[in-house]
């Protein structure tokens, strides 16, 4: 169980995780915020689909990857939360298709 050590007054921001609103402490990294919310796994690997969560917390392991505001494979331990941030678990490989220009075909 991830728990807060000092329960003194903190400021909060609202983010969404997989379309659910979550209140998290301001100033935390995305990884720390999601851990404190005890969300379990952060991603499923593109190789086997197995679940993973942060391992090193210092930008080395790439197991904390999530989708932030539509941008895939972001290292959540290096990025700070902010109000309104949209976070999704990173399921498998990065999906870059939605960002293609409107008029050019459909996703295969």
């Amino acid at each position: 169980m991830f728990t807060r050590v000092n329960k003194n007054n903190a400021k909060f921001v609202s983010i969404s995780l997989d379309n659910q609103t979550v209140k998290v402490r301001k100033g935390l990294t995305v990884a720390a915020a999601l851990l404190e919310a005890n969300i379990g796994h952060f991603r499923q690997t593109p190789v086997s689909g197995k679940p993973r969560a942060p391992f090193c917390m210092m930008g080395v392991c790439f197991d904390c990857l999530v989708v932030i505001d539509g941008m895939a494979n972001q290292q959540s331990c290096l990025i700070e939360v902010c109000e309104g941030m949209r976070i999704e678990r990173q399921i498998g490989p990065a999906d870059i298709i939605p960002e293609k220009p409107e008029d050019q075909g459909t996703k295969p």
Binding site: N73, A94, D95, I96, P108
Partner: peptide
């Protein structure tokens, strides 16, 4: 690149 969803047939 990193692994991406298949987009190139």
């Amino acid at each position: 690149t990193e692994k991406l969803e298949q987009f190139l047939e």
